[in-house]
Write a protein that binds this DNA or RNA. Sequence first.
DNA 1: CTCTTGACGCAAT
DNA 2: CATTGCGCCAAGA
Length: 112
Amino acid sequence: MIKIDSKEFEHTVYEIVCLIPKGRATSYGAIAKAIGYPNLSRMVGKTLAHASEMKIPVHRVVNSKGILSGREAFKHPTTQQSLLEAEDVIVRNNKIQNWRSVFWDPMIELHL
DNA sequence: CTCTTGACGCAAT
DNA sequence: CATTGCGCCAAGA
């Protein structure tokens, strides 16, 4: 079993998040899979929490059900929702509506 | 070294 | 739809 390089892991997470189109969103698990570590979804969340103040659209990452599970990590608990709504993504009760069509799967979209 | 903690995921109920 | 339970694994106490 090879130990993962957390540096490289984080870097790749950032790269993929930057590729999420405006008005779309993806999940922690989908990103983890695309990187090659299907069971490290929790680490993806940890990584994003530490990178919340960067120039990357971390607000476009939610859990597999389309729920804004990370809203508490933003400055204001409603920041993530505001950012999404500014991109015409409908959010109700901390959950993205029409999740099926908003979901952006890096595995498919990036032909992996 | 052991135990707990997550911006998680999924199947079962 | 909501809840429960279990698997997962790096990090920090």
